[in-house]
């Protein structure tokens, strides 16, 4: 019997950035947007629509959950999101995938010879 080796589908850029933003700490929606902007040095900006589309998808996939209320500061009614163990695994497998692409690309670019050499 063949062993099925399932690789998770690649994440979209928005989903990857959201998971990266939540990797260190629990954040609310606006915090995630600011963290993404900081990580990408302003190069990648997402609006609330894209953010919550992707957050909903990630919550459905159990990559992200609502952080419990006890961990928030008092009087803060905003929802905080937390990366789950499954989400962490998905993020690390995505990073591995990107790393292998980068390695392959670097190898090919180094090996490339000029046509009329």
């Amino acid at each position: 019997m063949k062993k099925e080796h399932k690789t998770p589908p690649p994440l979209s850029s928005a989903a990857l950035y959201i998971l990266l933003a939540l990797a260190n700490e629990d954040l609310h929606g606006y915090g995630i947007i600011q963290e993404i902007s900081r990580q990408s040095e302003g190069g990648y900006r997402i609006g609330p629509g894209t953010l919550y589309d992707n957050l909903k998808k990630l919550v459905d996939q159990k990559f992200v959950v609502d952080a419990p209320r006890s961990s928030r500061t008092q009087g803060d009614d905003r929802r905080f999101y937390r990366l789950t163990a499954t989400g962490k695994a998905a993020l690390s497998s995505e990073v591995d995938r990107l790393q292998s692409i980068v390695l392959e690309a670097q190898l090919r670019l180094r090996e490339r010879k000029p046509r009329n050499a």
């Binding site: 929606g29 606006y30 947007i33 609006g47 609330p48 629509g49 919550y52 905003r78």
Partner: peptide, 17 residues
């Protein structure tokens, strides 16, 4: 379903931005 869950937060972020 989407509106009930996220619309308030989206509007808040819209105002903040």
């Amino acid at each position: 379903a989407f509106r009930a869950e996220f619309s308030e937060e989206m509007l808040w972020i819209f105002d903040q931005q």
